[in-house]
Computed example of a mutant assay.
Amino acid sequence: MFLAEEAAQAASKFDSFDIFVILFTIVIAIGVVRLLSAAKKNPFAIGFGSISLIVFLIMDVVMVMNWMDKL
């Protein structure tokens, strides 16, 4: 019984929203790279995209640490 409860707790750490967070991080990273490589640079878009990328990367790190029980 104890092992079943422990397995249920481990399974509950992963949420289906985690997949979307990782996908949004990838999309934001692609956007920031494209903004930085563009001929005509938009400083506001580069700043907004960079801050968004930093926030999502921190969120990814916290999410993965929660999966590994490091948090």
Rank of each mutant, 00 (worst) to 15 (best):
I22H: 15
F20I: 10
G49W: 02
K40V: 04
V62C: 10
A7L: 04
V61S: 07
S16R: 02
I28D: 10
F24L: 04
I30D: 09
V21M: 11
L53I: 03
K70A: 13
Q9D: 09
A39F: 14
E6S: 00
E6Q: 02
T25R: 12
V27N: 05
L23W: 00
V32E: 03
I26F: 12
W67M: 02
F56M: 09
A38Y: 10
I28A: 12
F20Y: 07
L53Q: 03
V61N: 03
K40P: 00
L36E: 11
T25G: 10
D15R: 04
S50K: 09
E5K: 04
F48R: 05
V62G: 11
R34A: 08
G47V: 11
I22T: 13
T25S: 15
A8T: 01
L23M: 02
A10K: 05
D60Y: 03
V62E: 15
S37F: 02
V21I: 14
V64C: 10
M63Y: 02
F56I: 04
F2W: 07
A39I: 13
E6A: 06
A29M: 13
S52L: 09
L36Q: 11
M68Q: 04
G47R: 08
V55S: 11
P43V: 08
P43D: 06
I54Y: 14
A39V: 10
L36K: 13
V61T: 09
I30E: 10
N66M: 05
F44K: 09
M1S: 12
L35K: 06
D15A: 07
I58M: 13
S37H: 07
V55R: 01
K13E: 00
L35P: 01
L3P: 00
L57K: 05
G49F: 02
D15V: 00
S50D: 09
N42L: 01
L23Y: 00
I58Y: 12
A29G: 15
A38G: 09
A39S: 14
A39Y: 15
I51E: 15
A11W: 04
